[in-house]
Design a protein around this nucleic acid. Structure first.
Length: 722
RNA sequence: GGGUGAUUAGCUCAGCUGGUUAGAGCGUUGCAUUCACAUUGCAAAGGUCGCUGGUUCGAAUCCAGCAUCACCCACCA
């Protein structure tokens, strides 16, 4: 073999694009191709990750690189391990977020969604989304994702639409999806309902007002939202409260803020007699707890706030006023009439929409829900969606990493309420239900005949992503893909979507397939800036990962995000750490340079000296140790160990010790050293490849040639077989 | 109000089921360098492992309590 000359330094920008192209063209990202080409055994154990689909209109941020570095490292390891390895890529239509983004664009042009027909508007948003998709998919290539592009999916494409409608219909037919008039979280800014999990709470100072509806009203009540009190129908007290017992059952007619009210006094044990005045003004239309109270006591409800957060159905004084204005007016009215007994400052939580920041108004609306407590038959015994979600985690069928998220999950499941899945935006999966007069039809397609009108609402984006692990594999058809690749092996999302996404996958996969969606849920944390703050537009502390990649190489960035970051823990992004791994890539480059210069000839059969044999034995033991870490998903450990071995054992100790032997007069000593160093280099490249795929593949190609795709490092056998 | 996690060198973090002088990277200081690599090498300084008790022959590691920080959940009117 002729000697190979390497430049003195490694230049990632000169090689990465070409290497990715070579990987992609080989077809080996697709496990079926690996089997067909004999790279992977046909009966190999499968290993599958369904990528958490990034928002279709998003741009790549460090959080993505972190998440994808973890997944790609795991995927590459298992592929080299000989497993039938599939990483499914895709994007999420992110209904509300995408819709909001597009409406902003329209607003800039002085237009709104009302300027278009529903179909035209949808077409435009979808086109916008798919244009953007190309952008983010290109970025995933830059960071080296070894995903099977032939299985690319989008949560709102035709195949996924069929899956969504099938899932909806099955659940509808079984009574697990129902339409009901209930209090929902209304976002006046986004003009849509949202689920409980899309709400964020912000602690704020508010005033707590204690007052009476009228002079002759016997019980004072307290509230932070006086304007809603025009919707009151009752006052609830604790049944054992001596102060108020005598009034229970009576009804009072009062005129409150010029609005006539009929207030009944009821007793309910949910009322805390020690808080405030021990009496609650009941506003069934604008408070979930009051709605439930009203149902128990058969009270009417009166809606006084509309979808634009303005007052309605009340006195002229308040009608049409915004909620906050109305609050001031009511307080002034109370003061004028001498009805305000106390005003104090308290801390309480304001609910806002996670997506739009709009202040949530609880409103009664006719919406679609998933019933998590309804019993249905599963193999002859009754169960519920909630109990499916509970049991697979409790039993350990699904492993949760780190373990403490299990508790958080279980606690969340215990307190779960029905899931509101209908949204009043146009971009998303339209509810597959049609109405004609009193007739209703739920099916995959519109019913035959004239006059059927489809439900106007669309589905919560998480409903479609909840089907992700199997909608990407051909479900509802019983495909080979589904048989071979489901359940998937690992899912690797951020812990912030444990409830929004992971729980829904468990629910829907459990119900529709009677399978868990994945065996292990490995949650990662959040990438923060140097000072531990979240990256945000308002702080202007954003870092474009592609800038980091350009100057340091993708490998260095990936490695800096993996080493030393345990499951579930947040990490502070540190450019110096990236630079450290850029230096490491260069160090490896020079190790290879030295080895190829000192051992230009491949002498695999040269007899080993005792010392060199010992080095290789230690290397084998080290490889086994690293393999254990990889199997247990301790990437942060494995990465650090490999780094340390290559730099401080291989380079600092072994190479230095070998130098005299390479110059020895004894040919046997020389050849032994040459063989030992070459084996060390090849094994090091293999061990490091999952973490730093580009530089290792580049070196491998320079040593072994690039003519035959099968010689690529990506598909070489891992140093430890079993 | 309930819950979870964190607290180890100047900084960022490892330290699994308790066992000899507590580790890494970065940073700092000193020295070296025509030798594969200055994107380098060698060496050094630097920690009473948040606090208080307990269990133990022995605890950064287990238990209890406390403190500070962060996060999650919750419709207290």
């Amino acid at each position: 073999m002729s000697s190979i000359e390497l430049p003195k330094t490694y230049d990632p920008s000169a090689t990465e694009t070409d290497i990715y192209r070579r990987w992609e063209q080989s077809g080996f990202f697709n496990p079926d191709t690996c089997v067909a080409e004999g790279v992977t055994a046909a009966d190999a154990k499968p290993f599958i990750i369904a990528m958490p689909p990034p928002n279709v209109t998003g741009t790549l941020h460090l959080g993505h690189v972190f998440e994808h570095a973890l997944q790609d490292t795991v995927i590459r390891y298992h592929r080299m391990r000989g497993r039938r390895t599939l990483w499914i890529p895709g994007t999420d239509h992110a209904a509300i977020a995408t819709n909001a983004k597009y409406e902003k664009i329209l607003a800039k042009e002085g237009k709104s969604r009302h300027d278009f027909t529903r179909e035209e508007y949808f077409r435009q948003v979808n086109e916008f989304a798919l244009d953007n998709q190309q952008h983010i998919l290109g970025q995933l290539r830059i960071i080296g994702d070894s995903v099977d592009w032939s299985r690319l999916a989008f949560t709102l494409d035709e195949e996924r639409e069929r899956a969504v409608r099938t899932a909806f219909k099955r659940m509808y037919d079984e009574g697990l999806i129902y339409r009901g008039n209930r209090i929902v979280n209304w976002d006046p800014k986004g003009q849509t309902t949202i689920s409980d999990d899309e709400i964020i709470h912000e602690e704020t100072k508010s005033s707590l007002y204690t007052f009476r509806y009228a002079k002759d009203f016997p019980i004072p009540i307290a509230t932070t939202r006086p304007e809603t009190k025009v919707g009151d129908v009752a006052v609830a007290v604790h049944p054992d409260d001596e102060r108020y017992r005598g009034f229970v059952g009576k009804t009072y007619s009062v005129v409150f803020a010029d609005t006539p009210l009929e207030i009944r006094i009821i007793a309910d044990k949910d009322v805390d007699p020690t808080y405030g005045t021990g009496a609650v003004g009941v506003t069934p239309a604008h408070s979930l707890i009051d709605w439930e109270l009203a149902e128990r006591h058969d009270l009417p409800f009166k809606k006084v706030i509309n979808e634009h957060a303005r007052m309605e159905n009340v006195s002229d004084m308040l009608n049409g006023k915004k909620v906050l204005e109305a609050r001031e007016l009511v307080v002034r009215w109370l003061k004028d009439k001498g009805l305000l007994e106390k005003e104090e400052e308290i801390l309480n939580n304001i609910s806002k929409s996670d997506r739009t920041g709009g202040i949530i108004e609880p409103l009664p609306k006719l919406q679609w829900f998933v019933d998590v407590d309804k019993e249905f038959d599963r193999k002859g015994s009754p169960t519920t969606l909630k109990s499916i979600m509970r049991s697979v985690v409790e039993s350990g069928d699904i492993t949760v990493m780190p373990e403490h998220f299990r508790k958080i999950y279980m606690h969340w499941v215990e307190n779960l309420r029905d899931w509101c899945i209908s949204r009043q935006i146009l971009y998303g999966h339209r509810i597959p239900v049609w109405y004609r007069g009193d007739d209703i039809s739920c099916d995959l397609v519109a019913p035959k005949g004239d006059g059927w009108i489809q439900d106007e609402d669309t589905l919560d984006t998480w409903f479609s992503s909840g089907l992700w692990t199997f909608s990407t594999l051909g479900w509802p058809d019983t495909t080979d893909d589904l048989r071979i690749y489901h359940p998937t092996t690992v899912i690797n999302p951020g812990y912030e979507i444990l409830t929004l996404w992971v729980s829904r996958m468990i629910m829907l996969s459990g119900y529709l397939l009677d399978q868990i969606p994945f065996h292990t849920a490995y949650f990662h944390g959040i990438v923060r800036d140097k000072d531990g703050r979240k990256f945000s537009k308002s702080l202007n502390n954003g870092i474009d990962p592609l800038d980091v990649t350009r100057s340091n190489g993708t490998d260095a960035l990936r490695m800096s995000l993996i080493v030393g970051v345990g499951p579930g823990s947040d990490l502070k992004f540190d450019l110096n750490k990236v630079k450290g791994y850029r230096n490491f890539a260069n160090k490896l480059w020079n190790i290879a340079r030295f080895v190829l210069m000192s051992a230009p000839d491949d002498v695999p059969r040269a007899p080993l000296t005792e010392g060199d044999a010992l080095v290789l034995e230690k290397l084998a033991a080290f490889s086994r140790e690293v393999t254990d870490d990889m199997e247990a998903l301790r990437l942060y450990m494995a990465g650090e160990k490999i780094y340390h071995y290559i730099w401080h054992t291989f380079a600092d100790d072994i190479i230095e010790a070998a130098k005299p032997n390479l110059k020895s007069d004894d040919a046997a000593v020389r050849q032994s050293a040459q063989r030992m160093l070459r084996e060390l280099l090849m094994t090091s490249l293999k061990l490091l490849h999952p973490f730093m795929p580009f530089v290792t593949e580049e070196l491998w190609g320079r040593i072994h040639g690039t003519d035959d795709a099968k010689t690529m490092l990506m598909v070489q056998a891992w140093p430890v077989v079993e």
